[in-house]
Design a protein around this nucleic acid. Structure first.
Lengths: 404, 404
DNA sequence: CCAAATTTGTACGGGCTGCAGACAATCAAT
DNA sequence: ATTGATTGTCTGCAGCCCGTACAAATTTGG
């Protein structure tokens, strides 16, 4: 009789050392590709012999492949190593209240075909049916992209980690929808669902150069809602029920306007696109939900008007900027990140609102250094949310090569 | 020429496995002592031979010692192992705005002598001189306690990790005080300084049974200020500048009363002891700082009055309870902890305010499960802050046995 | 064109580690 | 006294990294 399994207690066995280094090698190849065995050894501070064994094992497992030989000023030319992402693709889906976006990427999250979008069907059942139909058609039309490894989906709401059920997505009106199960059955592919903020943070973590090294950052996605993802110590913070990071629903004012989540005065209510537009139209923010059919004007239009000299538009943006900075101050106080990444439509007006944001941040922050926390804008051209969706599948496919 | 050192990149070497298991064994002995080698092997799921080697090495290093043989129903009696905390002690110091508390503990944080306290001197230089004098006298009078391993100090403010300087402690009126350096010179002992919330969380982490296993919790200390410590994945969250976890300064209302930190409407302003007392006296919270000499009434007195039927006292407490729950909702949304620990004077009235706290928490939280997050009260008899101070030294002394 | 220098990737012995099973010591129950 | 169970140790084995040496590949210098 084998002894009881060590539950949640990291005992190191003979193979643990190999596993750890295997992971490091795979990470380094992913980040620095193309790279040679000798360069890996230099980066890791080990001998070339050690990495050769690891690399050859990864090649045998199909995680890595040898490409063309590289150039060297003197001496034998190195053989470059690449992540093996050939003939495999991922479907990334971004569900938003108004429209749903679909993209095909490779295993590294690189775009392989143009992004398509269509209006979001609010009924879960019909939504799944429509999405599955589009995914099947997309893959049938692009057989050259290789085998599809899975579908990654980001939603503006909370997701249960194990089951992939959407617990609550107020902006979609969804509650307890078993999205993963039904979609997986409809497309006959592995499906991963995650909160948009968490997924964006995950993608950012993956594409960061110094992977794992002091990875303490916060990712903010400002759009219909306010999605936040937190990475601490190189790991995405999930919390006990996988609902950590909901900074969008910390209060700016507990007596403020009501939020879709049921509470009052959440940060999200002050900085979402809807909030900015409502402010422009002079409506009371308390009249939420704002009638959607009346809002033909988009945030992009608003920014254009602000640049064109519309004082009311500029004021609405600056007001959003101020609230953004105030809430950011709370986040910085709580997390003390080394960076803050922000994406979303409103970042197109960053040059207009930056000083306002920073001033508001400094107002609430406890030290000068915290007030100087670098803010990095992630431009919409990078499709951060779709990249996050792709990362969900890529990370999983990656993990398979870790333990084997 | 050795290759460059692997910067922030966890490469596993030959000895890494041993180090990891050494750590696990030491942790298990600390938590479960007294324990035998055979029981350790069962807990870890390894063979007895493996743990024997580890244990004997720890004994040789003086981290662990063999005690009396234990009892067994059948077979050979096991030899119990203990953390070697004999003839070593730690001085724990809790600096609070009104009084400073001092206690002597062993390396496990167990109280060895009665707690003493004296009024806090606000001038840093004179404070250090007075504290050093008392520590020297205390140790001279208790030579039976063995060699002092160091002095752990908790302060209500931010501390720079490397230098041990107090960056800012508004409630003490301190700013950029090099406390560790000066105190270490005055008492000629190692000194560790830390924020009270972080230290309490650290102590809680250490005394928790399942060390490291899904250690996701938040520690709240409600007293003169609001000290918060966060533990995620079994690790204390420090952040980039060691100022993470300052949830005391997230806003409940950005237009609220001014806080000592410079911002407005911080959670701390609504739930600190001063806030509760001010509410009882009917003063406007905006008149901060409250005149200290006028406040001869303590929170404990207030609670006594509330129990005696003083409706105003009860109302003040319930109001604090409501704000406590509202802020707690923000913390739970952000961190999604498995537990919340709360200590501080006001917890003596927990039976009076619990339902109010829970109702307010549920109001702001996003899921039902999050609203049911267990709240554990840490009673003042356990001296949580002093235990936290002791843990600072114990953890360090512990770490020395990890790598060697 | 050839030899020296340089770089890459591989091969082999050594040391450290955990793994598995056997063994002596110890103690209660029979 | 015998039996059976339990503890702690010991010994051979396999896995892994470390250090060194070595062949292959390529540029540089004459």
């Amino acid at each position: 009789m084998k002894p009881a399994p060590p539950k949640n207690l990291h005992i190191a066995t003979r193979g643990t050392t190999r596993q750890m280094n295997r992971r490091v090698v795979l990470d380094l190849i992913r980040i620095n590709q193309p790279i040679s065995r000798a360069d890996l050894a230099r980066l890791m501070g080990t001998r070339r012999g050690a990495v050769s064994v690891l690399v050859n094992q990864l090649i045998a497992d199909g995680a890595v492949f040898e490409g063309a030989t590289g150039e060297a000023k003197r001496g034998r030319k190195p053989t470059f190593l690449y992540m093996d992402s050939r003939e495999r693709c991922v479907v990334a889906v971004d569900i938003r209240p108004t429209r749903t976006f679909v993209m095909v990427t490779d295993l590294l999250g690189r775009q392989l075909a143009s992004v398509t979008s269509y209006p979001t069907e609010r009924d879960p059942k019909r939504f799944v049916a429509g999405l599955a139909k589009r995914i099947r058609a997309l893959l049938a039309g692009h057989r050259d992209l290789g085998r599809c490894e899975g579908v990654g989906v980001v939603v503006p709401g909370m997701v249960e980690a194990e089951s992939g059920r959407v617990l609550s997505a107020p902006n979609l009106g969804w509650r307890d929808v078993s999205l993963r199960e039904s979609l997986a059955a409809a497309v006959d592919l592995p499906v991963q669902i995650e909160h948009s903020g968490k997924a964006c943070a995950l993608a950012q973590l993956w594409s960061t150069r110094d992977a794992g090294a002091s990875g303490n950052f916060v990712y903010l996605n400002v759009s219909d809602g306010l999605g936040v993802g937190v990475v601490l110590g190189g790991r995405l913070v999930r919390g006990h029920h996988n609902i950590a990071g909901e900074f969008g629903h910390i209060p700016l004012n507990i007596d403020g306007p009501r939020c879709g989540c049921g509470a009052a005065g959440c940060w999200e209510v002050y900085v979402s696109n809807l909030a900015t537009l409502s402010r422009y139209f002079g409506r009371d923010l308390r009249e939420r939900p704002f009638p959607a059919d009346a809002a033909t004007l988009t945030i992009d239009d608003l920014i254009t008007r602000a640049r064109g000299g519309d004082a009311k538009a500029l004021a609405a943006l600056l007001s959003t900027g101020r609230y953004l900075g105030l809430g950011l101050g709370a986040v910085v106080n709580a997390i003390d990140p080394s960076h803050v990444y922000i994406s979303g439509e409103v970042t197109a007006a960053w040059d207009l609102i930056e000083t306002t944001v920073r001033a508001a941040l400094a107002e609430r922050v406890l030290t000068q250094s915290a007030g100087a926390t670098p803010i990095v804008i992630v431009p919409p051209e990078q499709y951060p949310r779709l990249r996050g969706a792709a990362a969900l599948i890529a990370a999983q496919s990656f993990a398979e090569h870790m333990s084997a």
